[in-house]
Amino acid sequence: MIGLILWRLALVPLTVLGVVTILFVIFKSVPGDEATMIAGATATQAEIDNLRHQLGLDRPLPVQYADHIVRLLHGDLGYSATFRANPLPRILERVPATLLLTAAAIALTVAAGIPAGILAAAFQHRWPDVTVSAGVVALLAVPNFWLGMMLIALFSVQLHWLPSLGLTGPASLVMPAIALAARLIALVGRLMRGIVIEEQRKDYVRTAYAKGLARKRVLYRHVLRNALIPIVTVIGLQTGYLLGGSVVVERLFAWPGIGDLLLTAVGLRDYTLVQGITVLFVIGFLLINLLVEVLYRLINPRLR
C-alpha cells in the first residue's frame, strides 16, 4: 500500500513533465508570442524585439524549453503579464476556494445521490422511481452553467434567499455546489439504483432476510457496503469533469478560485498564466486520483 502510494507519487513529476512539454509545443506553435501580447497593438517592431530579447524569446526553442523546465523546478512559472511577475503565489492563494467548491460538490453528491438511488430501487417502477429516473435523465442533459443561472434567477433574484456572487459565507457555497454536483448526483443516483436492485436478488441478501434481519439492517449492513466500491470508482472517474466544470461554475458565480483566474488569463492572453494554471489542474487531477485509488483499496478487501 505504502509502496503503491510512493510509486504513484513518483510518477506525478514525470506526468507533469509530459504535460508541460505538450503545452510548450502547443503554445510555441501558435502565431504571436508573449512579447507581442505584452507590448500591445501600438508597439513598434523594435519595442517588440527588445521585449522578446528581455524575455529570452529570441533564443533557440530547445534552449527556451530547457530554461522553462529548470525554472519550473525552482517554482518559477515564467513572466506573467497580468501580475508582472512569477504568478505562482497568486495562483496558490486561489486554490482553497476551488478545493472548497469541489469538496462541497462531492459531499452533496454522496448526500443526495445515494439516498435517491436507494429510494428509486425500493419503489421500483412506482412513482418515486419514475421521479428519480426522470430527474437523472434531466440532470445529465442540463448544462451546469444554465442550471446555475436558473438557481440564481429563483433563489437570488426572485426570493432573495442566497447571494449570487463571490465567496461570502456558507450560504454563498450552496448554489455553486449544486450546479457543479448536479451531473454527479445523477450518475451516482442511477448507479446506486442499479446496485441495490441487483444486490437484492443475490443469495446473501436472501439469507439475511431469511435469518429474520430487518430490511433496513440488510440495506445498511450488507448492500450499502458492497455499493461503496463502484460509487467511489464513478466519483473518481468524474474528477476531470469536477475540475473542468468548476471553471465554468466559478465564472458564473464570480467564485475566487483558480478556474476563474484561468478564464481571466485566457481573456488577457497571458499564456504563462494559462500554462501554469493548467499544470496545477493536472497536479490536482493526479493527486485526487491517487486519493481515490487509496480509498478504493481501503474499502475493497480483495485488493488489500
Binding site: 504535460v19 466544470g245 471553471v247 484561468l262 493548467t278 489542474f281
Partner: peptide, 16 residues
C-alpha cells in the same frame, strides 16, 4: 498524458 488534463481545461487552454 492528455487524459490527465481535465477535458474542459484542455479545451479552454487550446482555444486560448
Amino acid at each position: 498524458l492528455l487524459m490527465t488534463v481535465p477535458s474542459l481545461v484542455l479545451t479552454i487552454a487550446m482555444v486560448a
